[in-house]
Amino acid sequence: MPTMGAFQKGYLVAVILAIMTILEYLFAVGVSSTEVRFAGLAITALAKVYFIAYYFMHIYRCWREEAH
């Protein structure tokens, strides 16, 4: 998403996170196997953390200098 404006990028990520949250909820309610549910929830959580840490918290700025 390099060409996108900063605001739009953030909102797109937020929409993705919201969809993931809803899907996570539906998944948890719908799946009966404990192991599958646990694994699915863990993967979703890690994916969400990636989005938040990268796009919201700008973790890359720790090792990459800011542009301005």
Binding site: E24, Y25, A28, V29, G30, V31, S32, T34, R37, F38, L41, T44, A45, K48, V49, I52, A53, F56, M57, H58
Partner: peptide, 23 residues
């Protein structure tokens, strides 16, 4: 604001662990 996002990250784990894990 980074701190605020961090609090959100914690909830990303706590919400499934407390609400969803048993379906």
């Amino acid at each position: 604001i980074m701190y605020w996002h961090f609090v959100d990250v914690v909830w990303v784990f706590y919400y499934p662990a407390l609400y969803l894990v048993a379906g």
